[in-house]
């Protein structure tokens, strides 16, 4: 774990110049798009044209993971998280709350401790277990690949993340948690490392949104 973390840091360091370059372009394009009448947010497609196919292919993989119950269940369409491999409405109907941490007696952390206890169906643990906050719900449920891609790269919809921050989000402990919840929960269709590679490939090749 510590090793992979360090190696990622190194990788991040090497990549930082490229990313900085990309960020400038993103900024220019985002300013442009603000002026246009379209609300659609198309990113980087022009300058990384030659890699857009790779980006698209990578996003297909990313999408299969993000729409998997292990990820989607906490990015629900409504204000109640989903639960289980069948993504049913969470049995106890906990609500998102303003900060995404739940409400009153139904805070996420009341059942999802920083570490879970072992067991088939015990609540998975994480120190920061939460949903996206109510002012930016980052819904995955029901999103088409194109809708989800556009949402992911839009700082107004993705938690104010620029592409660099979005890229780094693959390292978020809650994201990683999708693979370590334990019990007899189904795992996402890719391994974590496969997902991370696809995520970077998608972003680094232009974070292209597929056509409908």
């Amino acid at each position: 774990m510590a090793n992979s973390h360090n190696s990622f840091k190194n990788y991040k360091h090497l990549a930082s110049y490229i990313i900085a370059l990309i960020l400038v372009v993103v900024f220019v394009i985002s300013c442009k798009s603000k002026n246009s009448a379209s609300t659609e947010y198309v990113v980087l497609s022009k300058i990384t044209k030659k890699d857009s196919l790779a980006s698209l292919a990578a996003f297909e993989k990313v999408y299969s993971v993000l729409m998997h119950p292990r990820c989607m269940n906490c990015h629900p369409n409504g204000d109640i998280p989903l639960q289980g491999d069948d993504s049913h409405i969470h049995n106890m109907l906990p609500q998102r709350g303003p900060d995404g941490m739940g409400i009153s007696t139904m805070k996420c952390a009341n059942c999802h401790a920083s570490t879970g206890v072992p067991g088939e169906s015990t609540p998975p643990g994480n120190p920061l277990w939460h949903l996206p906050p109510s002012d930016m719900k980052m819904v995955f449920q029901g999103r088409s690949p194109r809708e989800l891609a556009l949402q992911l790269v839009n700082p107004k919809l993705n938690g104010h993340k620029n592409l660099q921050e979005l890229r780094v989000h693959a390292e978020d402990t809650l994201v990683k948690n999708g693979w370590t919840m334990g019990g007899n929960r189904e795992l996402p269709p890719l391994t974590y490392n496969e997902f991370k590679d696809a995520w970077y490939e998608w972003i680094d090749n232009g974070a292209v949104a597929p056509a409908n």
Partner: peptide
């Protein structure tokens, strides 16, 4: 059904 996660009893709400 092995526990209350999949065996549904009526809840308060």
């Amino acid at each position: 059904q092995k526990n209350y996660n999949d065996y549904h009893l009526i809840r308060n709400n």
